[in-house]
Computed example of a mutant assay.
Amino acid sequence: MLFLIQLILGLVQQWMVPTINNSFKPLKEMNYSLMLERLLKLSVPNHFIWLIFFYWFFHSCLNAIAEVLRFADREFYRDWWNAETVQYFWQNWNIPVHRWAVRHLYKPLISVGCSKTQASVCVFFVSAFFHEYLVSVPLKMHRIWAFSSMLGQYCNKGSICFLCV
């Protein structure tokens, strides 16, 4: 686990920070071709870091904690990499959060008379809010990018979204 954290830090310091520092001039000059090139250069290390962090947290850390606590159910993720739909991805990439959302949000909303579509919109709305909160507070950037992208994924999964009507 320590090696993976050091690898993430090394990728950020040696690959991403220099690219970001080289991006200030094209951003200031509004040079769209260089901006796109810098964005594409950042996508590769970002993808590596995301995958390493996923493995570090969901596989290494949670399994280590489960081992110490003798927790028998170690299904923290399923095969999200084989997802053909956004719905399948969200149901399989983070099993503890998905189960919590179903148990504490979706089923109670169904039991009080909401339709399945209304309940899933509410669950996605709450999830989008917390994704935005977890991004904006540590970075001190209060924008609605994570929130909008989450709701955009809901709208693209083929359901009727109240924001799109």
Rank of each mutant, 00 (worst) to 15 (best):
1 M>Q: 13
5 I>A: 08
7 L>P: 13
8 I>F: 00
8 I>S: 02
8 I>N: 01
10 G>S: 10
10 G>N: 12
10 G>K: 14
11 L>G: 05
11 L>S: 02
12 V>Y: 08
12 V>L: 15
14 Q>S: 14
15 W>K: 11
15 W>E: 14
18 P>W: 00
21 N>G: 07
22 N>M: 07
23 S>P: 05
24 F>L: 08
25 K>R: 08
28 K>F: 15
30 M>Y: 07
31 N>H: 03
32 Y>Q: 07
33 S>N: 12
33 S>A: 13
35 M>Y: 00
37 E>Q: 10
37 E>P: 08
37 E>S: 04
38 R>C: 04
39 L>H: 15
43 S>Y: 02
46 N>V: 11
48 F>H: 07
49 I>M: 02
49 I>R: 11
51 L>T: 10
53 F>S: 12
54 F>C: 03
55 Y>E: 07
57 F>T: 02
58 F>H: 05
60 S>Y: 10
62 L>W: 04
64 A>T: 09
64 A>H: 15
66 A>D: 07
66 A>C: 07
69 L>G: 09
71 F>K: 10
76 F>A: 01
76 F>Y: 04
78 R>A: 11
78 R>V: 11
79 D>K: 15
80 W>R: 00
80 W>K: 07
80 W>S: 01
81 W>D: 10
83 A>K: 01
83 A>M: 01
85 T>R: 05
85 T>V: 05
85 T>I: 01
90 W>N: 08
91 Q>I: 06
99 R>N: 13
101 A>L: 10
102 V>Q: 01
104 H>A: 04
105 L>R: 02
107 K>A: 06
107 K>W: 04
110 I>W: 00
111 S>H: 08
111 S>P: 02
111 S>R: 14
116 K>T: 08
117 T>R: 09
117 T>C: 06
118 Q>C: 14
119 A>S: 07
121 V>P: 07
122 C>I: 06
123 V>M: 00
125 F>D: 07
126 V>I: 13
126 V>D: 06
128 A>T: 02
131 H>A: 09
131 H>Y: 05
133 Y>P: 08
136 S>R: 03
137 V>D: 03
137 V>N: 10
139 L>G: 10
140 K>E: 03
142 H>Y: 14
144 I>A: 08
144 I>G: 11
145 W>F: 07
146 A>S: 04
148 S>A: 15
151 L>I: 08
151 L>A: 05
152 G>S: 01
153 Q>E: 09
153 Q>D: 09
156 N>E: 06
157 K>A: 11
157 K>M: 15
157 K>P: 01
162 F>H: 12
163 L>E: 06
165 V>N: 15
